[in-house]
């Protein structure tokens, strides 16, 4: 990091240094936390109280307000993690590796939530808790990739080597994400197609869509707050002798 710093005239990579990043993250976390709480409460209000009944699935469809945002972030956070892994390998930037490592638990959590809530949705609507169709199977593989990622991180003692090895796993595993997303198009699956896509009008009533998007935004701010807090822990663990933490202790 210091090499980059001394070489660049204007210090625009300043925020890539853990020393600068640590207090900045500390200042940002409360804002993201409050934003997440407000949006999630508003999303719950829209989803549970305001949104109308669905013409096919009755009240059972309300699971969509947690299931879909969780599923989106299970995939999006994986791509973000892989992105930071690439950055970490290419720039040899410690902070990028720390970001990647800090994203994994939240991504895994959302994957698990997507799988379990999907199960609670599938049972009454499809008639089965679980089926081995391409969508469900590839999402399960995503969970295994996350678990594999942090098993590898903790299995290797040397931090640098652990970062590099797990970064490679994260990058290779990223092929699974488009497979999950397009599985419902590429193969016959029990899981239905996407209601929301960039290429066509949403197949969803506006108020339902609004509730779902608000909830997703809430999950996004939650993820940012949690990940930043985790990066701070990571910085403290890796660089405990740095004096900058003393003020917090």
């Amino acid at each position: 990091m210091d090499i980059v710093k001394s070489k660049s005239g204007i210090n625009w990579l300043k925020y890539a240094s853990p020393k600068t990043f640590y207090p900045l993250a500390g200042q940002l976390i409360p804002w993201f936390s409050v934003g997440a709480a407000v949006l999630i409460v508003y999303g719950l209000y829209l989803g549970l109280l305001v949104a109308p009944t669905d013409f096919q699935q009755g009240e059972g469809y309300r699971i969509i307000f947690v299931h879909v945002p969780a599923a989106w972030f299970s995939m999006f956070l994986y791509l973000l993690m892989a992105g930071y892994a690439i950055l970490g390998l290419v720039l040899n930037a410690k902070l990028s590796h720390m970001m990647a490592k800090s994203i994994a638990p939240t991504g895994a959590m959302f994957t698990l939530v997507a799988l379990v809530t999907g199960s609670f949705w599938g049972k009454p609507m499809w008639g089965a808790w679980w089926v081995w169709d391409a969508r469900l199977t590839s999402e399960l593989i995503l969970l295994f990739l996350y678990i594999g990622y942090f098993s590898l991180q903790s299995a290797i003692d040397d931090t640098n080597r652990a970062d590099k090895a797990s970064a490679i796993l994260a990058i290779v595993g990223a092929v699974n994400v488009p497979i999950i997303y397009f599985s419902v198009k590429w193969w016959n699956t029990l899981h239905q197609g996407a209601s929301i896509s960039l290429t066509k009008a949403p197949a969803m009533a506006a108020i339902m869509l609004k509730g779902m998007l608000i909830m997703a935004l809430g999950f996004w701010l939650y993820s940012i707050a949690v990940i930043l807090a985790r990066v701070r822990c990571e910085i403290m663990e890796r660089d405990s002798k740095a004096a900058l933490f003393r003020q917090d202790i």
Binding site: P52, D54, Q57, I64, G127, Q192, S195, A203
Partner: peptide
Amino acid sequence: TQVLAKHDENYMPPEAAA
């Protein structure tokens, strides 16, 4: 031996569907 329902990706209130 098993029958599963496959639903579509449309969500709307019953009035809109009607």
